[in-house]
Amino acid sequence: MAKAHRHPETRDVPPRMLVAFGAGLVLFIASAAIGMKLAFNTTPTWLPLSANTSPENPELQTAPKQDLISFRAEEDRQLKMLGWVDRNAGIARIPIDDAMWAVVSNGLPDWSQQGAGAASTENCALVTAAVPRAPQAQNCQQQSRAGR
Rank of each mutant, 00 (worst) to 15 (best):
P135S: 09
V104Y: 10
T121D: 13
F28W: 11
G90E: 03
M100S: 10
M81Q: 13
A146D: 15
C124N: 02
P135T: 07
V26D: 07
G115N: 06
W84G: 00
A129F: 12
Q138R: 14
D110G: 01
A102E: 05
E59Q: 02
F21M: 12
Q138A: 15
P109Y: 02
F21C: 15
Q78H: 09
T53R: 00
T42I: 14
G24D: 04
L25T: 11
M1N: 08
F71Q: 09
E122K: 11
I96Y: 14
H7R: 03
P64C: 06
Q138I: 12
L18D: 09
K3N: 07
N106R: 09
I94K: 00
N41H: 05
E9L: 08
S112C: 04
G107E: 02
S54P: 06
G22Y: 04
P95D: 07
G24H: 07
R93A: 05
A63G: 10
K37L: 03
D97C: 05
P55G: 09
A130R: 01
L79M: 05
T43Y: 09
P132H: 01
P64R: 05
M1I: 00
W111P: 07
A137L: 09
P44E: 06
E59L: 03
A134G: 15
P8H: 01
L18P: 02
L49V: 15
L47I: 15
L108N: 13
Q141A: 13
S105W: 00
L68K: 01
S105M: 05
